[in-house]
Write a protein that binds this DNA or RNA. Structure first.
Lengths: 348, 348
DNA sequence: GAAAGCCGTGGTAACGTTCCCACGAAATCA
DNA sequence: TGATTTCGTGGGAACGTTACCACGGCTTTC
């Protein structure tokens, strides 16, 4: 048999005040005598009172619940985002409702409905929908995360700064003597790809390189995709050192496997630079040098923006979080041994 | 300006029935005319009604919320557990509140309080506390997960079957010609270690091997821990093939690095078997052969048990989920080339 | 044919909290 | 001193739903 949990009325009785006064004391309102507050708090401790969030939400409209809708909590990047969001939420006494959409419209819609029914105060969403209808109908404050947020420029959102990331990566490649790397990119349909390419082209223009002369392969954002892309790259490349900038760590790791299978060595014969910062990159051989996205910071920042959104404060627009280089062992340093002698340098 | 959301009363008015009838129709109760139900459902659709879960929870005592308290959502294993739990919860129309405790008593206690205040219907908990006080005070239905659940044998819990996992691993080692491997274990304080060792000893007895004669090293459950342990192992081992069973994949990956640093090759000189099934093991070189825990299934099963617990159905006691072998490239096959010629075979 | 049971319906209370208003006492102002 | 403000307090309504009870009409039973 489970005993009835004490309510604010029990506390009020024990303290000898009305439930209004007890409520004020417990919620930290100012217009209560110190003496009354003391008595109420003591009584609450004595009876083991714990506020009923449902009742609070019911009456005040604020539930202390935040929603997080991401493609897959199993993906290390999204796990980091979730962790950051959860920590920042907890700091502010709020709890996080987590949902995985698996890039599925139906699931996303159903999760958004669940969020509404739970009366969350707001949500952080990585949208799978490519039109704004679903989100527009959401009806609650929300913040977008991830690169697909770019499709909704008018909405408050937080993402990694792909432009800056590409720049960091290219600077590093140049410093190691690979000014004109080959590219392994994601599917043409993805927004992130376009942004990546755009910045890459800017970089080429600055350095007087013809981007059209650089080898480029597409593939899914998976190990298999990277593996296949690298095989194609190696078929085109016969001699000299090959440097590759992959748009995704999993692709980079797949590419590394392809290099090994071709009887070549990384980084001696092929240099590989990744993008994401997945933990697995630390255990590959060689360790994967990569541009890491600040997943945790994105999650935290998204919660901050969401709070502003909820409070009706002027919206942030798009927030871009800076990425950073993690240097491990997958890049050869050609800057000293054979300055400027990369695969395609001076071809065109 | 955000318009007031339609309530069940709006639906009832539109349908021309009382709110009682509307409520019955919407909650799928049986004692309503088909005609009335139809009218109510149509009205609900027309006004865009969505049930208020807070009010339901307030009145009925069931919130449709489940809690999940794990050490760290960022850890791939726990992410899998969370994913499984979330999917199974969603199947049953419930939402998951996720918290990371970071093995910290204070955080755990505060998360449990948050769950109580949110009036969740139940919780799945990987307890960090080593005494039962906190959990005993929890006051809501719950199911324990992870190996530390072993400290609370009276409570319903779900974990991986370490005994079976060790057996699978050993069988595989034997089949490859490594009947007496060295061990890399976790810290002495951890429950999982004891269970691992116990089964290992049983295995040795069955095969007439003196476990005391086998090299054994401890370390933290991290890459660094495994790295250091393997270095110590290699100092003791001068010649012949060395086979190692690591109690954790991260340790195994660290060990692999140590092997490479010592100028040896895996699997030619050293065979390594891991335990966990982390994704990173697929990208190491060689790929890590390992015994994988069924994280997702554990999460799903835990939710099933929790439903039983909530419904007051007879408790399950401890549920053990079977692990499976993932064979990649980190074990040499000595069974043909040099039958039974492992490092320590026939020493004692 | 009367009593008893079933079924669909509607009205009302209850869940636990916060919000709003009114009240009296003390403090301040003219 | 009398009028006005301030402050702490208490009472009651409200949030949106489900649980409970009572009612009338119908069918079943003896």
């Amino acid at each position: 048999m489970r005993r009835r949990r004490p309510t604010i009325i029990d506390v009020a009785q024990k303290a000898g005040v009305s439930k209004s006064t007890a409520g004020r004391a417990l919620s930290g309102a100012s217009n209560v005598t110190d003496e009354a507050r003391e008595r109420v708090l003591e009584a609450a401790r004595a009876v083991g009172y714990e506020r009923n969030d449902l009742a609070v939400g019911m009456r005040s409209g604020r539930t202390g619940l935040l929603g997080l809708v991401i493609p897959d909590i199993t993906n290390p990047f999204w796990a980091e985002v979730a962790r950051g969001a959860q920590d920042r939420a907890a700091e502010n006494g709020m709890s996080l409702l987590v949902f995985s959409s698996d890039w599925d419209h139906g699931r996303e819609a159903s999760h958004l409905r669940a969020l509404r029914q739970a009366r969350v105060d707001g949500a952080i969403i990585n949208p799978v929908a490519d039109n704004f209808d679903d989100l527009d109908r959401f009806g609650l404050p929300f913040v977008l995360i991830g690169s697909s947020a770019e499709r909704f420029p008018a909405t408050s959102s937080v993402g990694s700064d792909i432009a800056q990331a590409v720049r960091i990566g290219m600077d590093h490649l140049v410093s190691k003597g690979h000014p004109a790397p080959a590219l392994i990119l994601g599917p043409k349909s993805r927004i992130a790809r376009a942004r990546f390419l755009r910045t890459f082209h800017e970089h080429c223009v600055e350095r007087d390189i013809d981007p059209a002369a650089l080898p480029m392969e597409d593939g899914e954002y998976t190990v298999e995709g990277g593996h296949a892309a690298m095989k194609r790259l190696l078929e085109r490349q016969r001699a000299g050192h090959l440097a590759v900038f992959a748009a995704n760590d999993l692709m980079a790791l797949g590419a590394m496997v392809a290099v090994r299978e071709a009887g070549l060595r990384c980084p001696e014969d092929v240099s590989i630079l990744g993008f994401d910062g997945v933990p697995a990159g630390a255990f590959s051989w060689p360790g994967l040098t990569t541009v890491a996205k600040p997943g945790r910071e994105i999650g935290m920042r998204a919660v901050d923006c969401l709070f502003d959104e909820i409070a009706g404060r002027p919206e942030h627009g798009r927030v871009f979080m800076p990425c950073r280089l993690i240097e491990r062992g997958s890049l050869a340093d050609l800057s000293l041994s054979q300055p400027m002698r990369t695969a395609w340098a001076g071809r065109g």
